[in-house]
Simulated assay, not measured.
Amino acid sequence: MDDCRMSVMAIYGPLVLATLSGWKQPRLYLALDTTVLWNRFCMIHLSVVCCGRAVPLLWRVLEHNSVTVAFKALLLRFALTQRV
């Protein structure tokens, strides 16, 4: 459900960018995960791994009944749909 009074990217985007700009570690670990919801939707999220936790960077829900998503299509979809 969209709420025209609130923009997730307007709030979360600058927070993530500020955090990553101050990253002091020599490596940045990313986790890519998929989850199927109600055998109808596939939720895909790309997260930064920090202190043993996955902090979401990007996420997308597709109408797709499997956790198997073509990697190239996934990356292309993320790249084309993000507004930072």
Rank of each mutant, 00 (worst) to 15 (best):
C51D: 10
K24C: 11
A79D: 04
C50A: 09
S21D: 08
Q25I: 00
A70R: 12
A54C: 13
W23V: 04
C50Q: 03
A79Q: 05
L74G: 05
S21Y: 03
R60G: 07
R40Q: 12
C50T: 13
T81L: 00
L62Y: 05
Y12P: 03
V48M: 01
M43G: 01
C51W: 01
L17G: 08
G22Q: 14
L28K: 06
L17M: 03
T34L: 01
W59I: 02
L75V: 13
R5V: 00
C51A: 13
G52T: 13
A73R: 12
I44F: 02
L37P: 05
L37Y: 14
F41Y: 15
M1H: 13
A70L: 09
N65Y: 00
L57R: 09
L17N: 03
L28E: 00
N39P: 05
R53T: 13
K72N: 13
L37I: 15
W38E: 10
L80I: 10
V16K: 02
V36D: 05
A79C: 09
C42V: 15
L80D: 00
K24T: 15
N65P: 15
E63N: 10
C50D: 02
V49H: 00
L57I: 13
L58Y: 03
C4E: 06
V61W: 00
A10Q: 03
A73V: 11
W38N: 15
L80G: 02
G13P: 01
A73F: 06
Y12E: 08
M1P: 07
V67T: 15
Q82R: 14
C4N: 10
L15T: 15
R83K: 14
T81M: 01
D2I: 13
A10D: 04
S7T: 11
L28F: 02
A70W: 00
L28I: 14
L57G: 03
K72W: 02
L58E: 01
V8S: 08
H64E: 03
D33M: 07
T81I: 01
H64Q: 13
A54Y: 07
A18Y: 09
V8L: 04
Y12I: 11
I44Y: 02
R40C: 02
F71I: 14
P56T: 10
H64I: 12
A18D: 05
V69N: 05
D2M: 09
C51V: 11
R60A: 04
L58T: 04
W38F: 12
G22R: 14
V36F: 09
P14F: 10
K72F: 04
S47D: 01
A79R: 14
Q25C: 05
L46F: 04
P14Q: 01
L80F: 02
T68K: 11
V16N: 03
L15D: 07
R40Y: 04
L80M: 07
H64A: 06
W38G: 04
W38C: 12
R27H: 14
V69L: 05
L62P: 07
A79W: 07
M43V: 15
L74E: 07
K24A: 13
V8G: 08
R53Y: 09
A54M: 08
D33F: 08
M9S: 11
S66K: 10
N39C: 06
R53C: 06
V8C: 01
W38H: 15
Q25N: 12
T68E: 10
L37C: 12
Y29P: 09
C4K: 12
T35C: 12
V69R: 06
T34N: 11
D2C: 10
D3E: 07
T68W: 01
W59C: 08
